Amino acid sequence: MTAPAHPAAPTASAEPAPLRTLRLTLVPALHPTLDGPAVPLVDPSTPPPRPPHRPGPRPTPPGQRRTPVDAFGPAWSVRADLPDPRAAGRLLLTTTLEALAGRRPLSQVQRLTSPGVHAALTQGRPPAWCREGTAPLVLGPVHVCEPVDGVAEVSAVARRAGRAHAVAARLEGVDGRWRCTALTIG
Score class of each variant (00 low, 15 high):
92 L>F: 08
65 R>W: 11
156 A>S: 08
53 H>R: 04
28 P>G: 04
113 T>Y: 00
88 A>K: 04
143 H>I: 14
128 A>C: 03
79 R>Q: 14
74 P>C: 11
60 T>P: 00
85 P>F: 09
150 G>S: 01
100 L>V: 12
86 R>E: 15
61 P>L: 10
117 V>R: 00
82 L>Y: 02
151 V>D: 00
71 A>V: 06
165 H>G: 06
167 V>Q: 03
129 W>Y: 07
64 Q>A: 07
107 S>I: 05
66 R>D: 09
108 Q>T: 13
122 T>F: 04
106 L>R: 10
33 T>R: 14
58 R>E: 03
126 P>V: 14
108 Q>R: 11
162 G>H: 04
131 R>W: 08
110 Q>K: 10
116 G>C: 05
125 R>M: 08
135 A>I: 15
94 T>A: 09
100 L>Y: 04
55 P>Y: 01
62 P>A: 10
49 P>F: 07
92 L>R: 02
163 R>I: 03
35 D>N: 15
85 P>L: 01
147 P>T: 13
151 V>H: 06
82 L>P: 11
151 V>C: 07
63 G>M: 13
117 V>M: 08
157 V>N: 00
47 P>D: 15
90 R>K: 13
134 T>Y: 07
96 T>C: 15
109 V>W: 00
130 C>Q: 05
125 R>V: 06
91 L>R: 14
41 L>E: 12
58 R>F: 02
145 C>F: 12
48 P>F: 02
46 T>F: 00
45 S>I: 07
65 R>M: 12
69 V>G: 04
103 R>M: 09
40 P>K: 03
59 P>V: 06
140 G>N: 11
66 R>S: 15
130 C>A: 10
91 L>Y: 03
63 G>A: 07
139 L>V: 12
75 A>C: 08
87 A>S: 10
81 D>P: 01
119 A>I: 08
105 P>W: 07
135 A>R: 15
129 W>T: 11
33 T>M: 13
127 P>W: 02
148 V>W: 04
109 V>K: 00
60 T>F: 07
156 A>L: 07
98 E>I: 00
139 L>G: 03
113 T>G: 01
129 W>S: 05
92 L>A: 13
137 L>D: 01
59 P>G: 03
26 L>I: 03
84 D>W: 08
89 G>K: 02
140 G>P: 10
141 P>N: 10
138 V>S: 09
59 P>W: 02
117 V>L: 06
154 V>D: 03
127 P>Y: 00
39 V>A: 08
37 P>Y: 09
63 G>Q: 06
86 R>A: 15
135 A>W: 11
90 R>C: 05
53 H>T: 11
43 D>E: 06
114 S>V: 03
87 A>I: 12
49 P>I: 00
65 R>E: 11
166 A>L: 09
140 G>D: 14
91 L>H: 10
140 G>A: 03
32 P>K: 01
69 V>D: 11
101 A>N: 06
49 P>D: 09
63 G>D: 06
124 G>C: 02
76 W>R: 05
154 V>M: 03
65 R>Q: 02
157 V>S: 05
127 P>L: 10
132 E>Y: 04
